[in-house]
């Protein structure tokens, strides 16, 4: 085959090399999602069964949950699915720039969701005193939503790797250090996500503890100056490494890779809709 297919020449809904016309990667992802349904089905069932038989002294879910925050993060996660769909559409048309911006937005929204979850877990443990060990509600809640959060985190990591992979040059002879460059790209990306999350959550706690004042802000800046500098450096690295210097090896032929990832991402979103309903909303009926 030619190494670069002209945009729009591939039928993305039919693979002539397979018996059914469905690309193998897509089919294996659908089969995996069937399996994952059973994983979440068992965990959600566990939560719902134990919810019906609370022993005395279990914290009241309504007094622990903060439905406003969770509604917000649910909305963000749903919007990330929209961006994921746009990313798939972009690469099916061979539009690399649009693919990258859509992937970045998806990662951004995914990180907001994860940040909310970290904040929520912190809040439940330290403010509401519900831990994974001290009550059956804590046990099932943290295990179930933690498993979902792990799925989101794996999804963000996968999106990030796909984003970086889109920078693999077509002419690797001309740019022999592309692989080290990609590794550096991944490192600064993870650094930026972790440091930003750390700083924001620290800041939120500082404001809650010390009030929304300049003094709090000053204390926060003083304690985290190194982390902040490292964070800025990571972002500069992302901008520097994210500059376009084509031509790239990643093109329309990779659409099935992005689509497979998209299926996973949408599935994790759908699972969250079920969890949001069965774990949170159910408590408010």
């Amino acid at each position: 085959m030619s190494s670069t297919a002209a945009a729009g020449t591939i039928d993305h809904h039919h693979d002539p090399t397979t018996s059914t016309g469905i690309p193998n990667k897509k089919l294996v992802m659908w089969a995996f999602l069937a399996s994952d349904c059973m994983f979440f089905g068992c965990l959600i069932s566990t939560h719902l069964i134990y919810r019906l038989h609370p022993p005395p002294g279990v914290p009241q879910a309504r007094q622990v949950f903060s439905i406003e925050l969770t509604s917000f993060s649910t909305f963000i996660l749903l919007m990330s699915s929209l961006m994921m769909a746009l990313a798939v559409n972009a690469i099916q048309k061979g539009n690399l720039r649009s693919l990258r911006s859509s992937l970045l937005t998806t990662i951004f929204f995914g990180c907001i969701f994860l940040g909310c979850q970290v904040y929520e877990f912190n809040n439940f443990v330290f403010e509401k005193h519900m831990t994974i060990t001290n009550s059956i509600l804590g046990t099932t809640f943290f295990t179930l939503t933690g498993t979902h959060g792990t799925h989101v985190a794996i999804g963000v990591f996968w999106l990030l790797l796909m984003y970086v992979r889109s920078f693999q040059p077509q002419d690797t002879d001309a740019r022999p250090y592309w692989f080290l460059r990609n590794l550096l790209h991944i490192a600064v990306f993870i650094g930026a996500i972790v440091l930003t999350g750390y700083l924001l959550i620290w800041l939120a706690w500082a404001f809650q503890a010390g009030g929304f004042t300049l003094a709090t802000l000053g204390k926060f800046a003083g304690a985290n100056v190194l982390a902040a500098i490292a964070d800025v450096a990571c972002f500069l690295g992302i901008f520097r490494l994210g500059r376009t210097a084509g031509p790239y090896a990643f093109d329309e032929a990779n659409a099935v890779d992005v689509e497979m990832m998209g299926l996973y991402w949408h599935f994790v979103d759908i699972v969250w809709i079920v969890i949001f309903t069965a774990v949170y909303l159910l408590e408010y009926i």
């Binding site: 085959m1 190494s3 297919a5 591939i10 693979d15 002539p16 090399t17 397979t18 018996s19 690309p23 193998n24 990667k25 002419d171 690797t172 002879d173 022999p176 692989f179 080290l180 090896a249 032929a253 990779n254 099935v256």
Partner: peptide, 22 residues
């Protein structure tokens, strides 16, 4: 219909230089 033949759904054949890890 060669099931393992190269198609648009598989990566291209020509990849010139690869680091040692590959």
């Amino acid at each position: 219909m060669d099931a393992l033949a190269k198609s648009e759904f598989l990566p291209r054949e020509h990849v010139a230089q690869k680091p040692l890890v590959f």
